[in-house]
């Protein structure tokens, strides 16, 4: 018994070591880039280990005359917030409708099939199609176009996730509310939405992050003034081939939503990511 316990202990120790190594490999690049963002260009090129941290990279990225980062950041906040709100609202209503309001099976299947098939399509192919469409109807506001595109892009995911969370709510609760005298809207607002709040938060965080991160469609549909953070970074990297430390600073700044989400919503992210795939 005791040898067996010892054996188990050493196995556990080996596994913890393995996990620790994986964690170092995961976090390492972020630490390295974070360090680089506080270095001077020369310190980085020299490969110095000990250095005096400077904030000039951040100053330049955020407030520099030629830097578009602040504007990119605002664009991203606007696009991600608006498309998240839209995708969540539309996805919630559609999910509720499909699950609860007795649509014929083919309607339900049509939407579910769409949600699945749509995921197969590379966004780049849609970027081309949307570009042609928006150009065709003369939609000149890039930001509005991008919000529409991101809403479309993430609506299937929102619909899929919200449906799986909705499915967990017993129908009887809604029936009870209805008998208690609640209207359709009141039932949603006072009973369904509060109960599925964790699911809504999960979906919201994920859609926001995905929209924030989205690159090819944003690249296709925006210009210099309407560019989002990923587009801004890409342009910056291409145009200023050698401003490595500023690129590092910009990278750190654009990871902020991800870090915030991880810090405050880790539980919700896991819930959302697994619910989407497993169900």
């Amino acid at each position: 018994m005791s040898t067996r316990r010892k054996q188990n202990l050493s196995v556990d120790r080996a596994l913890l070591g393995f996990l620790f190594l994986a964690a170092v490999l995961t976090i390492g690049p972020f630490l390295w880039i974070a360090l680089a963002s506080f270095k001077t260009q020369i310190a980085l090129l020299m490969g110095t280990v000990k250095f005096t941290p400077v904030s000039m990279n951040y100053d330049e990225v955020l407030f520099g005359n030629t830097s578009t980062f602040a504007r990119n950041f605002l664009n991203s906040v606007l696009v991600a917030s608006a498309s998240t709100m839209a995708a969540m609202t539309i996805g919630f209503l559609a999910g509720y409708s499909l699950l609860r309001l007795r649509w014929p099976a083919w309607v339900v299947n049509l939407f579910l099939l769409w949600a699945v098939v749509f995921n197969l399509v590379p966004p780049v192919t849609l970027a081309g199609a949307w570009y042609e469409l928006f150009r065709g109807i003369g939609l000149s506001n890039d930001t509005v176009a991008l919000i529409l595109a991101h809403t479309t892009l993430h609506l299937p995911m929102a619909l899929w996730l919200l449906s799986s969370f909705l499915r967990e709510i017993p129908r009887e609760l809604e029936e009870a509310a209805f008998i208690d005298g609640a209207s359709f809207v009141k039932t949603l607002w006072r009973v369904v939405i509060p109960i599925m709040m964790p699911g809504l938060v999960s979906t919201g965080i994920l859609v926001f992050i995905f929209s924030w991160n989205e690159f090819p469609v944003a690249l296709a549909l925006t210009n210099n003034t309407s560019a989002t953070v990923p587009v801004g970074i890409a342009k910056f990297a291409q145009e200023n081939e050698i401003k490595y430390t500023q690129m590092a600073a910009a990278s750190v700044l654009s990871a902020i939503p991800a870090l915030l989400a991880l810090l405050f919503g880790q539980r919700y992210i896991v819930k959302g990511l697994t619910a989407g795939a497993v169900k």
Binding site: P170, E172, L173, E175, A176, A177, F178, I179, D180, G181, A182, S183, R190, V191, P194, I195, M197
Partner: peptide, 27 residues
């Protein structure tokens, strides 16, 4: 249902999980 002036007790009770007992009865 709400115009029929009826009340129902469900098999699963269907209590609103996010509300206290007071709020459940008050709803």
């Amino acid at each position: 249902p709400r115009d029929r002036d009826i009340a129902m007790v469900f098999q699963s009770y269907a209590l609103y999980p996010h509300m206290t007992v007071r709020q459940n009865i008050d709803f």
